[in-house]
Nucleic acid binder design. Structure first.
Length: 418
DNA sequence: GCGATCAGTT
DNA sequence: CACAACTGATCGC
């Protein structure tokens, strides 16, 4: 079988350090934008509508003429120049909702190099109605394109990681709050993501939710105008930056007023405290003998702290379903900093390369295609930054230099040759 | 001041 | 212990 690959210097996804002709941003989390700055001038940047809407608040002063919105579910064509041969080539890309955080998309590419799918970070709640559109887009796109390489969000690519859909976890959060009348509630969140959880809480409890000022601005950009507030007097439910609150904080707060903390996280493990031991106990083990409310999967890791399995990344079974659907010829994990990292191929190798090849493969569909001319002229730098970097730190060794570089992907980097 | 990198935090 | 996502210190320019 012919090895598909895309040459370096053509496009980059969530990677900003090297010269490419087009740059693609899957979503606005910091670990996918490191290297991207307000003074960006390396080349055109493509992202979803919502990411573009949020973009100026994250990168004030950014030259917006470099920013182009790509609608989801459509093929967008762009003419690029092969850095090696200098000849023109056409590349097509389709963004598909990734259901990770607001604006997050996957990118499906096709061109001379074949067909590549970058999931970025993604959640694949196949049962849920919200994921239906994305699934249909993907299935439709894959009818005519067999994926040669799948670049996969393998954050929780281990059978040990199982958790329920977010709606289920959101109900668990409400149950916890309900069982603590009179308590103040603190929920740890990041700068983007988990808005649906907060909205659900707000709806169920009929309360506003406090957020910090920058987060309120983000909420407004996302179209939430009534639910969130920065006035503490209006609500006892507060969403705070995850990194700003700990068990020590909770202990402090509890000297003033009864308060519980809720950590929405796909990781079931403890948050550590500097003092005092933490009696980790499962609230529920799945039996239905409970006299008290059964909250499956929730961990009470401390007197005042709960961890709820609310994750914006796919759990193992969702990753598996996704790979079964895509059936790529080969695949690569985009997260390699984890010490428990295992190549997705270890689990899903049997799913690779068995998809029957469609007759229509690589035959372009005219109807939903739009053409974008990007300015290749100004971006065909002769600068070639030759810094060979292996993206694959295998095993558990702590290679500091590689700790944070593994999120982005240069297309076709370190492809195996044969 | 700005950007890149590293150390450390929940 | 772990992760993802983030802050803040430090260094070079």
């Amino acid at each position: 079988m012919k090895e598909r690959k895309m040459e370096n210097g053509l496009v980059s996804v969530d990677k900003w350090s090297e010269k490419s002709q087009a740059y693609f941003l899957t979503h606005l989390h910091a670990d996918h934008t490191q290297g991207l700055t307000s003074t960006w001038s390396k080349g055109p940047l493509f992202c979803s509508q919502l990411t573009a809407h949020l973009f100026p608040s994250r990168f004030p002063g950014f030259n917006l003429s470099l920013l182009t919105v790509l609608d989801t579910g459509l093929w967008h064509s762009m003419r690029l120049v092969s850095p090696s041969s200098g000849s023109q080539t056409t590349l097509q890309v389709m963004p598909i909702d990734a259901h990770h955080c607001p604006g997050a998309v996957m990118f499906l590419f096709r061109g001379d190099f074949g067909c590549l799918l970058f999931t970025g970070d993604f959640r694949w709640e196949a049962e849920c109605e919200s994921a239906k559109t994305a699934r249909e887009m993907l299935v439709d796109a894959l009818k005519d394109n067999a994926v040669d390489v799948l670049y996969l969000d393998n954050t929780y690519c281990n059978p040990a990681f199982e958790f329920p859909p977010r709606l289920v976890a959101a109900r668990q959060v409400v149950d916890i709050i309900d069982s603590h009348p009179g308590f103040d509630i603190i929920i740890g969140i990041d700068s983007l993501g988990k808005e649906d959880l907060l909205v659900h809480i707000s709806d169920m409890l009929e309360t506003k939710i406090w957020v910090w000022p920058e987060r309120l601005q983000t909420m407004h950009l996302l179209g939430f105008h009534d639910i969130f507030t920065t006035r503490t007097s209006l609500t006892s439910v507060r969403a705070v930056p995850r990194y700003s609150f700990s068990i020590d904080t909770l202990n402090q707060l509890n000297t003033m007023h009864p308060t519980i903390g809720i950590m929405p996280s796909g990781l079931p493990w403890m948050v550590k405290s500097t003092k005092g031991n933490s009696n980790k106990s499962q609230l529920s083990t799945g039996t239905e003998t409970g006299t008290e409310k059964i909250v499956r999967g929730v961990e009470r890791c401390h007197e005042y702290m709960y961890i709820v399995p609310y994750s914006d990344h796919s759990c193992f079974s969702e990753i598996k379903e996704f790979v079964e659907l895509v059936r790529p010829t080969s695949m690569k994990g985009i997260v390699s900093s984890s010490s428990s990292y295992v190549e997705p191929f270890y689990y899903f190798g049997g799913l690779c390369g068995e998809r029957p090849i469609s007759q229509n493969e690589h035959e372009n569909k005219e109807r939903d295609e739009r053409v974008i001319d990007i300015q290749t002229k100004s971006f065909c730098g002769i600068h070639n930054t030759i810094q060979s970097r292996s993206m694959k730190p295998v095993g558990v060794s702590r290679v500091t230099a590689l700790r944070r570089v593994s999120r982005g992907s240069k297309l076709a980097e370190n492809d195996s040759s044969d």
